[in-house]
Simulated assay, not measured.
Amino acid sequence: MPLTPLDIHNKEFGRRLRGYDEDDVNEFLDQIIKDYELYIRENKELQSQVASLQERLDHFANIEETLSKTIIVAQEAADEVRNNSKKEAQLIVKEAEKNADRIINESLSKSRKIALEIEELKKQASIYRTRFKTLVEAQLELLGTDQWDSLEVKENQA
């Protein structure tokens, strides 16, 4: 157990013949007591400062740990957002490709249908032309026959 200033003050030394001067010893002990009290006070102040600094250090260590965790969580969130964005972009591209394929297929189908309709109309026009030509030729042939002359004579007689 360490000495206290009171222990030093109350210390009694035995007396011997030709010993030290009692006043010098007491004066020296008084100086030791003052210095010892000063060191004890300084030690308490330093311990208080160490405790305060340790408390601040612990506080900053907690802040650092919290910031580290926050950065990790933010990084993970950013990674998740980036991954989700990539997936969403891929889905959008796939959907656009599907729509483009559908539009192209519909356009090709309509184009084929229109081409078939055009061919059908050409065939019908050709048939109509042939029939009309045949009809006109038949009428011209009919006009060129003698039957018209006989019809004209019958009309004049009537």
Rank of each mutant, 00 (worst) to 15 (best):
D21G: 01
E119G: 03
N83W: 12
I103S: 12
V25M: 00
R112G: 01
I103Y: 04
K94L: 07
L57P: 02
N26P: 09
E141Y: 15
R82T: 05
Q139R: 01
Q31Y: 05
R82L: 14
S48R: 13
E65V: 06
S150V: 14
A89F: 09
P2Y: 12
S126G: 00
E95R: 10
H9R: 15
I104Y: 01
K87Y: 00
N156F: 15
Q75S: 09
L116M: 13
I72V: 12
E80P: 04
L38W: 11
L57Q: 02
D23P: 11
D21A: 01
L6A: 10
Q47N: 08
N43P: 03
P5Y: 00
Y36D: 00
I8D: 00
I71H: 03
K44F: 09
L91E: 10
N156V: 12
S126D: 08
R18E: 02
Q90H: 13
L46V: 05
T4P: 01
L29R: 06
W148Q: 10
L142E: 07
R56Y: 06
I114P: 04
A125V: 01
S126C: 03
I72C: 15
K87F: 03
H9N: 11
N43V: 03
S109G: 02
T4H: 01
I114N: 06
E65L: 05
R15N: 11
K44H: 10
E155T: 15
E37V: 04
K87W: 08
K122A: 02
S52E: 09
S107P: 00
E65Q: 12
F13L: 13
E76R: 06
S85T: 14
R41A: 10
E137S: 11
N43F: 01
T66L: 10
G144S: 01
E42G: 14
D58T: 07
F60N: 03
Y128M: 05
W148Y: 09
I72N: 08
K122W: 04
S126F: 03
Q139A: 09
E27Q: 12
L46I: 10
Y20A: 13
D149S: 14
Q54Y: 06
Q124W: 06
E117F: 07
I118M: 09
S111R: 08
I71K: 09
T134H: 13
L17I: 07
I71G: 11
L57G: 05
V73H: 07
E95Q: 08
Y36Q: 01
E141H: 07
L38P: 05
K69S: 03
E88F: 07
E55C: 04
L3R: 00
Q54W: 04
A138S: 05
I32E: 03
K94R: 14
E120Y: 06
E27G: 15
R15P: 12
P5G: 01
F28Y: 15
E152S: 05
D101T: 11
R112V: 11
L116D: 13
A89S: 11
A100I: 06
A138L: 02
E141M: 14
S85I: 05
A115N: 13
E65W: 00
Y20M: 10
A61E: 10
N43Q: 13
N10V: 02
E55Q: 05
L121M: 07
E119H: 12
A100G: 01
E119R: 03
P5V: 00
K123Q: 08
I118K: 03
N83Y: 15
V136M: 13
V153A: 11
E155M: 11
I72M: 13
E117K: 06
V25T: 02
N156Q: 15
V153E: 09
I114D: 07
R18M: 14
K113R: 11
A78M: 04
